[in-house]
Nucleic acid binder design. Structure first.
Lengths: 126, 126
DNA sequence: CAGGCATATACTCAAGTGGGAATATACGAG
DNA sequence: CTCGTATATTCCCACTTGAGTATATGCCTG
């Protein structure tokens, strides 16, 4: 596992993050609240920790885990370009620019293509 | 594969979405621009399509793929609760509320625990 | 110092999944 | 009808990863 998204692909891990979003928690608390085997919790926490989503503080024999907002920034910034999308969805200007971009791309398109245009009903098809 | 996050865990799929964020594209265009084998492109597009991230329109033998903003909403809404976090990070009130929440939780905590109290400035992680 | 709790790690195993190659299907052109 | 192009699908394999079980480590209490 590596990327931010791969890490969040795990349902248990997402659940843990949501728990921690409310407040910091010890491993045992997470274990009970999510009803997961303790080794699982530790393992997932390790992944989250190494990815920078959480950090842990030692309190005697317990480890108190807490959220680290920074890691979420990556998600946020990845999502940003798409946000422009559902905002200006029915925007005519958008459509126009998009069309321009597409035509421009077709200009420098590879070899023997081009000429797919219109005029569908020519001879008999099927 | 199932969940939104699992789908975005794939680098190629994210790349494809970013391409489509700029404008709609045919399979062949994606294939060339990302330099991926055609079967891979089709397979990933299928996953994205079935998950509602994209939709396809038929243009003769080509399929033109286009983004579908709705699917991103889920991401957006999952991320929302955490946004409150990096916004009010150094906020004292937050800290206070958090502490209260934690103490309250300790009240109704299971059996033989309790009695971890004072300042124990121990180690950190990371 | 012994015993117990809280957490982490090691190991094995089965399942999901991406990649590659080959092939199938759909359509348009001559 | 036949060929070439565009895309989808199938099959197989290697690899990653989460679950489960057992065990190790650290720290507190009596």
């Amino acid at each position: 596992m590596e990327t931010t998204f791969a890490i969040l692909a795990e349902p248990s891990r997402r659940a843990m993050l949501q728990l921690l979003a409310a407040s910091e928690r010890t491993v045992g608390e997470i274990e009970r609240q999510l009803d997961l085997p303790q080794p699982s919790v530790s393992k997932h926490l390790r992944v989250l920790r190494e990815a920078g989503f959480v950090e842990s503080r030692v309190d005697a024999q317990r480890r108190v885990y807490r959220l680290r907002p920074e890691a979420f920034m990556e998600l946020e910034s990845w999502l940003a370009p798409f946000r422009r999308f559902w905002a200006a969805h029915a925007d005519a200007l958008e459509r126009h620019l998009e069309r321009m971009e597409r035509m421009e791309r077709m200009e420098r398109t590879p070899a023997g293509r081009r000429g797919r245009k219109s005029a569908r009903p020519k001879g008999r098809t099927r």
